[in-house]
């Protein structure tokens, strides 16, 4: 199964949002990204459940993603997820332990969305010929 990367290049950040190719046509702007990663939005427009994958708290990638792409602080995101979990008003994102696991889980999970470091894309190309790279930078209006 292919993996779709949304590098959001217009932001000149070092993080790319990746989505399962089932939703390759999704237009990802900051509002949508925040709605997804704050777990406010539970489904794609076609009704498929959104599965959110994140890196562990405190990891450099997680911190950068929160700051650069979501425009917030990691501890604010943690507080948001905790509030959801401990009030029974939603699901927490799934924490993965590495970028490799992130790519694998997003690729294999319908409706999945996650993020990786931009540089990983080119490094992985030779080893992962099945990975489809489809820049979506034009959709980003950061």
């Amino acid at each position: 199964m292919a993996l779709l990367c949304a590098p959001l290049g217009a932001l000149a950040g070092s993080i790319e949002v990746i989505v399962n190719p089932d939703h390759a046509s999704a237009t990802i702007d900051r509002n949508l990204l925040r709605a997804i990663f704050t777990m406010r939005l539970r489904q794609w427009p076609d009704g498929e459940p959104i599965q959110v994958f994140v890196m562990p708290d405190g990891s450099e990638l997680s911190n950068e993603f929160c700051r650069e792409q979501l425009g917030t602080f990691p501890y604010v995101m943690r507080a948001t997820w905790d509030r959801i979990v401990f009030t029974g008003t939603g699901l927490a994102p799934t924490v993965v332990s590495s970028e490799r696991e992130m790519r694998d889980r997003v690729r294999s999970t319908p409706g999945a969305v996650g993020y990786i470091r931009s540089g990983e894309r080119s490094q992985l190309l030779p080893a992962q010929p099945n990975v489809l790279l489809a820049p979506l930078g034009g959709f980003w209006r950061g």
Binding site: Q43, G47, V85, G88, T89, L91
Partner: peptide, 12 residues
């Protein structure tokens, strides 16, 4: 201890 079950994207 808590449990959340999302039986449908609209129903939790």
């Amino acid at each position: 201890l808590n449990a959340q079950i999302q039986v449908h994207p609209r129903l939790l």
